[in-house]
Amino acid sequence: MARLARLALTDEEVERLTEELRAIVDAVSVVGELDLADVPPTSHPLDLVNVWDEDEPRESLPLEDVFANAPERDGDHFRVPPVGT
């Protein structure tokens, strides 16, 4: 799970989280008591229909702003360590 979540957890963290998450998963598992075969899921609480906006070009952020908070910049790119194998 930690690999999926992209977290480099320490052994100690894994141990603590395992215990905490077991208790939390137990608590939330009560949703399984209900028979909901015929109930549709809700992903959004408002009955909104899709809104189409005109496809008009707008100005984007200037590049200097885009890179203002970048940890590492290389010209017009964000620089990261080698992706590796």
Binding site: M1, A5, L7, L9, L21, P81, P82
Partner: peptide, 30 residues
């Protein structure tokens, strides 16, 4: 920093997030 992109991301997230976001990220991923 990390030697590879993957290591950098995992370390950034491990050191950057506190215990509660980590709990919720793990719970949500599950």
């Amino acid at each position: 920093d990390g030697a590879t992109y993957g290591e950098m991301v995992d370390r950034t997230r491990d050191e950057g997030f506190g215990p509660e976001p980590k709990r919720r990220i793990m719970l949500g991923t599950y």
